[in-house]
């Protein structure tokens, strides 16, 4: 186990260096002159030259990369051209909103996806199985941005069941910022009005974001449940006279959930992607929208920093999933050592 862990961490380190190279490459090929967007189109040549020196664009590529690597090693992601603040500060500001939304979305896809998968395996080819299959198909085929718009149209504009896009009603005052997550902060401040309003605002984007994950989870739980249910030990449990509910939950589901762990990890990556589109539509002040704007305005440091942070999060989640997998399924660890 320890050996495996060390190997994984070493691979992760190599991957991180690779990520640095790729993001640096991205910043190199950006054709638009970032200087003109800082200085403005009518800036005199001297100003542009001075800025070029200031940002180090006049140096050869390998020196630029060295500087870049050095900055990153010190945790400095540079300054965003758009907001004028350090990128790391911006990310710290916007990340909690995305984390909160993604967590609620993931929670939603797990608590709906797992039971749906189990039920469609147990009642194979029944209406519930067909329903879950159609829902999964729609979930993986739906353009997230389109579903978001349609939901806004129906549930906000036409029916008025859910509030306008955004995190909180403009009349309400945000509670003191402790974690940056509105639900947590308002709970700490015991501000119920804000808590429920934030919850209402979160419903539509979390549903849209979570549908994709739900589809994957329901699918994988169904197929692994079908696998497990045909095993001998399930028969044994039934012969022993265990109640069907116990057989399903304690004997079958526990084993069927192991593959689901991988999918949940992958889903998290999907949520990070989906947040760029979902947050754009729901005016959610999170990392996804920040990144989306940065990409459009070619805000170099924000693009590079944001992309790198997403990749880092993604890698760490994958590492945790792999370790969890080895922990849950003892056979894997033994096979590797």
């Amino acid at each position: 186990m320890l050996q495996y862990l060390i190997r994984r961490v070493v691979t992760l380190a190599i991957t991180l260096i690779g990520i640095m190279v790729v993001t640096f490459f991205i910043s190199l090929v950006i054709p638009a002159d970032p200087l003109s967007s800082i200085a403005g189109p009518q800036a005199p040549q001297e100003t542009v030259d001075r800025l070029r020196k200031l940002y180090g664009f006049d140096q050869p590529i390998y020196i630029q990369f060295g500087r870049y690597a050095n900055r990153l090693a010190h945790g400095d992601l540079g300054t965003s051209f758009q907001t004028g603040r350090p990128v790391l500060e911006d990310i710290a500001k916007y990340f909690p909103a995305t984390f909160e939304l993604a967590t609620i979305a993931l929670f939603f896809s797990i608590i709906v996806g797992i039971p749906l998968g189990v039920l469609s395996a147990v009642y194979r080819n029944s209406p519930i199985d067909h329903f879950s299959r159609v829902l999964s198909l729609i979930g993986v085929s739906m353009p997230v941005f389109w579903l978001g718009l349609v939901f806004l149209l129906i549930f906000y504009f036409k029916l008025g069941w859910f509030p306008e896009p955004g995190r909180l009603d403009i009349m309400l005052i945000e509670p003191e910022r402790l974690t940056g997550m509105l639900l947590v902060d308002s709970l700490i401040a015991l501000d119920w009005e804000v808590f429920f309003d934030a919850l209402k605002h979160m419903f539509l984007p979390a549903f849209v974001l979570g549908l994709y994950g739900l589809a994957g989870i329901a699918r994988i739980v169904r197929s692994s449940m079908l696998d497990v249910l045909s095993q001998e030990y399930i028969k044994t449990a039934r012969i022993k006279g265990a109640r069907e509910f116990i057989v399903l939950t304690r004997h079958a589901l526990r084993n069927a959930l192991i593959p689901a762990v991988t999918i949940i990890g992958l889903t998290y990556g999907g949520l990070l992607e989906g947040s760029v589109l979902t947050e754009t539509i729901f005016s959610w002040p999170g990392l996804g929208r920040y990144l989306g704007t940065a990409f459009l305005t070619l805000d170099l440091n924000a693009v590079v920093g944001g992309t790198m942070l997403v990749a880092l999060t993604f890698c760490l989640v994958n590492l945790v999933v792999d370790l969890l997998y080895a922990f849950l399924d003892p056979k894997i660890t033994l096979a590797r050592s």
């Binding site: 991957t15 690779g18 990520i19 790729v22 993001t23 991205i26 950006i30 990556g269 999907g270 990070l272 992607e273 989906g274 760029v276 990144l291 989306g292 990409f295 459009l296 070619l298 693009v303 992309t307 997403v310 990749a311 993604f314 890698c315």
Partner: peptide
């Protein structure tokens, strides 16, 4: 190591 859409967006940008 990058989510696909993020990598595609970054390169497209």
């Amino acid at each position: 190591a990058f989510p696909k859409l993020i990598l595609a967006i970054a390169f497209a940008a």
